[in-house]
Design a protein around this nucleic acid. Structure first.
Length: 560
RNA sequence: CGGGGUGUGGCGCAGCCUGGUAGCGCGCUCCGUUCGGGUCGGAGAGGCCCCCAGUUCAAAUCUGGGCACCCCGACCA
């Protein structure tokens, strides 16, 4: 079926919405792919839905290829199921109530539901199982943004594996990992699979698939030599060496009136910021105070500290700080206070200036291990200029979109939901599970971020809405339109998906729209070339263009 | 949730400070013209000025309250 543009709903826009920032946001809107309905809530217009479906089909094929079984679980879910796994308090969870007063949620993931079904698996003989579906996910995001980058409702492919033990889970996990690599490759994305944060309730292993792009929510840290890649949240970097001033046998008080920032401190003492330390007091869930200590030129990584503490925490309030330290923020240090100190590994060696826990005073020559006993851990956020922990090469930082995430959740859900099977040894055991998600909408956005020019989208062929865009520059001339239709029909016959611009518009507009829409191949049929029986052909990425005799179009397209 | 900003025809904006019956560009309709990178000319259609209340002879404009949307941050299975 040839898609005749004159009859389709493809509302392209000359200008981007004023509030759009991300390239993918602007181009998907301008190209007539998506439209916003409300904050973080989007409609896929016909063209956008075609692309979405292309991504979905690739995901489906790769899931099927590893033996995963497609199904469909409902969006509307009884709250009770989430209460059993103690996830009903999560703020991002949409809730609603029916006319009988029963509570429901609109979940953003389906571990509970799929585990509910897994209860019908009774025996190890029925394992392993791998189930997946594409379904609408709702998530009450505090702040949606960037077009498709962060939304409140979206379609996700989520797959779940159930195994009898860790070894089985590992095998399932590896299958998914490989399927994910193939999936994103086929979608034409540049991406890295990196170790990621497993989350407070996660399991042991967690891999993020990050696609570097102009805008995104994550930061991908990679080594110039390819020896290392990680999400910034857990990335390790070797900081530049601390520039140490003269040593002191014991900490010395120095008066630093009004100095509460590292910059001011370093300037006053005429030392490098790397010779200072920064103290961040936090309060854990149980109410105990912890002091995070990093080098002055570093930032505390909250996700790493979370991992170290093993429990949620929040920044201490001014009141709590004053009560515990006897001084205000900016004058805090590890000495002379009765709180646990977690110091970054960078502070193991050398001496540092630290707050004296007295307003307007600092201590110089403070040495961890000698003057106080911290718990050492890697709690700093890597920064530009760090080197690779594996090879010492330079680390690069790139903004990235998380297009997929896989992690092992073990018995996190099967225990509370009492999903158990009888193992070979006659013992009833909970399933050991993994969870594997892909957001096709984010794949779309990432593809646009990675592949576009100043005029519009340059789709990777496998997910383009149509393979070929045939432009009929007929200007009312019937024979030109007829020839364009002939070319389109021939391509269609060959199995190509063809969009025919048969609209009664001027050439300039057709070119502009065609650039915006971004199909990989463009064929231009107009009077000019038709005079000698040829048409103009062109690849959207600009790698090839020329004029071929009309009968040779199929051959050219085939090669392209 | 904290900070900043914006709501005026379909889209992008001006008007608001200094109240006086709403304007520009694009798009849309019709006529003519043009036809290989968003032609040109003419004639038109289209607006609860986000909502509610207040001040005033008079409110897009001033005041109060609310809502929505965007950006930065916090948050992010």
């Amino acid at each position: 079926m040839i898609a005749r543009q004159s009859t389709l709903f493809i509302p392209t826009l000359r200008e981007a919405p004023a509030d759009a920032e991300a390239v993918s946001h602007k181009l998907l809107v301008r190209g007539g792919y998506i439209r916003q309905v409300s904050a973080g809530v989007w409609t896929y217009l016909p063209l956008g839905w075609r692309v979405h479906q292309k991504v979905v089909q690739i995901v489906r094929e790769e899931q099927d290829a590893i033996g995963a079984q497609e199904m469909l679980m409902p969006v509307l879910t009884p709250l009770e199921l989430w209460a059993q796994t103690k996830r009903d308090y999560i703020e991002e969870l949409f809730r609603l109530r029916d006319r009988h007063g029963r509570d429901y949620v609109l979940p953003f993931t389906h571990e509970e539901t799929v585990t509910f079904h897994a209860r019908e698996i009774q025996s190890y003989r029925q394992l392993p199982q791998m189930l997946y579906h594409f379904s609408v996910k709702d998530r009450d995001e505090p702040r949606p943004r960037g077009g498709l980058l962060r939304v409140r409702e979206f379609i996700m492919k989520d797959a779940y594996s159930f195994d009898r033990d860790e070894a089985g889970l590992d095998a399932s996990f590896r299958k998914q990992e490989e399927a994910y690599h193939r999936t994103f490759q086929r979608c034409g994305l540049t991406f890295s699979a990196v170790a990621a944060e497993s989350g407070v309730m996660g399991g042991k292993e967690s891999i993020d698939f990050l696609a570097p792009s102009g805008s995104g929510e994550n930061t991908l840290v990679t080594c110039e030599n390819g020896d290392y890649a990680a999400d910034l949240e857990i990335a390790r970097g070797i900081p530049r060496a601390s520039v140490q001033p003269e040593r002191h046998d014991k900490p010395q008080k120095i008066e630093t009136p009004g100095v509460t920032t590292i910059e001011a401190l370093a300037e006053l003492l005429a030392i490098d910021a790397s010779a200072t330390s920064k103290a961040m007091p936090v309060v854990r869930a149980d109410g105990t105070l912890v002091l995070g200590l990093v080098r002055g030129d570093d930032r505390l990584s909250e996700s790493k500290l979370l991992g170290v503490l093993g429990s949620d925490f929040r920044p201490a309030t001014d009141y709590e700080i004053r009560t515990a330290f006897g001084a205000g923020g900016g004058s805090l240090g590890p000495i002379g206070v009765d709180v646990e100190v977690v110091a970054d590994d960078a502070l193991r060696e050398g001496q540092y200036v630290a707050g004296a826990n007295r307003d307007g005073w600092h201590l110089r020559g403070v040495e961890a291990g000698r003057d106080f006993e911290p718990r050492f851990a890697d709690i700093r956020e890597p920064i530009e200029g760090d080197t690779c922990p594996e090879c010492g090469g330079a680390l690069r930082f790139q903004t990235a979109i998380e297009v997929g995430h896989i992690f092992k959740f073990g018995d996190r859900y099967s225990r509370p939901l009492e999903a158990r099977f009888l193992d070979e040894d006659g013992v009833e055991k909970p399933f050991v599970g993994g969870s594997y998600g892909i957001g096709p909408g984010r794949v779309m956005a990432a593809a646009v971020e990675q592949s576009h020019d100043e005029n519009g989208i340059v789709w990777p062929a496998p997910i383009a809405p149509y393979h070929v865009h045939v432009l009929a520059l007929h200007g009312g001339a019937e024979e030109v339109l007829a020839e364009a239709q002939k070319v389109a029909a021939a391509l269609d016959e060959e199995g190509y998906e063809v969009l025919l611009d048969d609209r009664d518009e001027r050439p300039g507009e057709k070119f502009a729209d065609s650039d915006l829409i971004g199909c990989p191949i463009r064929i231009i049929v107009g009077k000019r070339s038709l005079e000698d029986g040829s048409v103009d052909v062109r690849r959207r990425d600009g790698s090839d263009e020329g004029r071929v005799a009309a009968p040779d179009v199929l051959k050219w397209v085939g090669q392209a």
